[in-house]
Design a binder for these strands. Structure first.
Length: 300
DNA sequence: GGCCAGGCTAGCA
DNA sequence: TGCTAGCATGGC
């Protein structure tokens, strides 16, 4: 079933794969040489393995989609929609670039990262769990914890002679005990936050699908009452889970460090300073955030 | 060995 | 409302 997706240029898929912004994890398989991205997507209870291959250029991008035959028409449509969202294929970065051109210090960064966008998480439950796990931990250790969570789930899908690990469902996580996660080196609190969130999803207190029709402000109001979910967590969820374009996690240490470095400040800017300074970047503050985070990653 | 990491909560003034 | 100790672990 040959399928393709035509992103809005500029779109640099190779760069997105080489330095994935959205916290690489065990459930994504990246082949940098082939320019391919593979993972399992959850459609309800159905698990669909998908491979996306770069077959274009930055200025004439094209992605080939490979997924199993035998999906219904609506399932196929949903797979394409999810992939378009994950790779932000319909976002036109020219608006962001022309906005940032007027901002001192940004020219070099934009040139270096031209065509880059974040790879979004494939679903909202997975996204929130990853963000909660990532609170106040170095990125590397957070990734290790997520990996252990996936291993504990133990679910795999066979695809082209490989075995793809699958991020555990809310139902599965909700069945675990806090002790199960303590055994993986989660702190007591983090274990509670993750499992309680899964239970809130399963018992219907939180309707993740309903969030798509809500404003950013409504999403803060919905999620922040949950224990373990503060402002930063919702901001990252909006950035990596929902792909909202104008979010600025001003309290984020990484953003603050990146601004300090980019502007050559002697001190690390505080939250209110970051909010003020980033106001002119609206309505593109999410992209400014991605590029700031990316500026901190060592190129290997 | 100490400090920090892409924070949050509970308790206190 | 605003401030802070405590959380738990790994990386550097």
């Amino acid at each position: 079933m040959p399928e393709q997706l035509i992103p809005t240029s500029p779109f640099d898929f190779r760069q997105m794969l080489r330095r994935p912004l959205s916290r690489p994890s065990k459930v994504t398989v990246i082949d940098a040489t082939a320019g391919s991205f593979t993972r399992v997507i959850r459609l309800g209870t159905r698990l669909v393995p998908v491979t996306v291959v770069d077959e274009g250029t930055v200025d004439q991008p094209m992605l080939r989609l490979i997924y199993p035959e035998g999906l219904t028409e609506s399932e196929g449509a949903e797979v394409r929609e999810r992939l378009a969202r994950m790779f932000s294929t319909n976002v036109n970065l020219q608006g962001f670039y022309s906005r940032m051109e007027t901002q001192a210090g940004w020219g070099g960064l934009i040139k270096q990262l031209y065509g880059l966008r974040a790879i979004q998480d494939a679903d909202l439950f997975e996204s929130m769990v990853k963000v909660i796990v990532g609170q106040q931990l170095n990125v590397q250790f957070a990734a290790t914890l997520v990996e252990r969570l996936v291993d504990l789930g133990g679910e795999v899908v066979d695809w082209h002679s490989t075995s793809l690990p699958v991020f555990p469902s809310a139902e599965r996580v909700a069945d675990w005990s806090y002790e199960d996660l303590r055994a993986l080196s989660f702190s007591q609190r983090k274990a509670e936050y993750v499992i309680d969130f899964a239970r809130a999803v399963v018992n219907g207190r939180i309707g993740l699908d309903e969030l798509w029709s809500k404003s950013d402000a409504e999403i803060y109001d919905t999620l922040m009452p949950l224990r373990g979910v503060g402002r930063w967590t919702v901001e990252c969820f909006l950035l990596f889970g929902m792909g909202r374009p104008d979010v600025m996690p001003a309290a984020d240490i990484g953003v603050q460090n990146a601004i300090q470095k980019l502007y050559g400040l002697e001190h690390r800017p505080k939250e209110d300073e970051v909010r003020q300074l980033s106001e002119p970047w609206a309505p593109w503050r999410s992209y400014a955030t991605y590029y700031l985070w990316q500026s901190l990653i060592r190129v290997v």
